[in-house]
């Protein structure tokens, strides 16, 4: 039990520096939720149940332009497809735990808790995986709820005339830049962005889904092409 305690605290310690970026992000998401017209209760429901910042921002932007509910749901899910990747990568470390425990660990998956934990698991075999992961993930969740609440309270004080809706594309930009790591991901971004502009007249904002899918496939195709050219050079 002592080791569990120690590794839990190690997780807590190593997630804390990352909260510096998370706290303002959660606060801005709370402010934005109220700015598009959600009640405090609904905004808190988003933070606690949807529990995924980038998709929450996308939901608020789409609510602001009166997109159809189906497009809002699809867009949020597409943004969160990356969780499948995290789930697959964490699974080997938690396979011996009961299903109920694993479902709790699953709910707590975030970009930050995943990144910090997997980094440690790769380096050190002896750490108690469950304890360390819970240390990172529980602190992350607590910071997310609390900062969202602060943002929701502040948000109701900010007048709409400030044009804070422009904060949405700016936030996505800051999230997008680190995601463009190489040529194939750049292709995905360029194709996704261009198709989104061209297909904007489509009804219910369906253009967004079309743009996302073609962007992802173009990136995949570009990578395949790149690998083939690389292979040919070696041979």
């Amino acid at each position: 039990m002592h080791a569990f305690h120690k590794d839990f605290l190690a997780g807590v310690r190593e997630i804390i520096p990352i909260l510096l970026g998370v706290i303002p992000f959660a606060m801005i998401s709370g402010v934005s939720a109220v700015a598009v017209g959600l009640t405090g209760c609904q905004a808190m429901g988003m933070a606690a149940f949807v529990f995924a910042g980038a998709s929450q921002f996308a939901i608020y932007q789409l609510l602001a332009i009166n997109a159809s509910p189906i497009v809002i749901v699809m867009t949020a899910w597409i943004i969160n497809l990356r969780f499948i990747m995290y789930s697959a990568s964490l699974a080997p470390y938690f396979q011996k735990l009961p299903t109920r425990t694993r479902s709790l660990l699953a709910y707590l998956i975030t970009d930050q808790a995943y990144a910090v934990s997997i980094n440690r698991f790769d380096k050190e075999e002896t750490v108690n995986h469950q304890a360390y992961y819970l240390g990172t993930a529980v602190v992350m969740a607590a910071a997310w709820y609390f900062s969202s609440l602060v943002g929701i309270v502040l948000g109701s004080q900010i007048p709409a005339s400030w044009g804070l809706d422009f904060a949405f594309p700016l936030t996505f930009m800051a999230l997008m830049m680190p995601a463009i790591k190489d040529r194939p991901t750049a292709v995905a971004a360029i194709v996704g962005g261009s198709i989104a502009v061209i297909s904007k007249p489509l009804p219910y904002n369906l253009g967004l889904i079309l743009a996302a899918v073609t962007g992802i496939l173009s990136g995949f195709a570009a990578e395949t092409l790149q690998n083939q050219i690389h292979l040919r050079k070696i041979l």
Partner: peptide
């Protein structure tokens, strides 16, 4: 699947950003 998922953030975020800048009034 893991290869496809790698492109999700770049494609989706760009699709949200670019139209909001280039065509804010449709």
């Amino acid at each position: 699947l893991t290869r496809l998922l790698r492109f999700v953030p770049a494609a989706v975020l760009s699709a949200l950003v670019i139209p909001a800048l280039v065509a804010p009034k449709n």
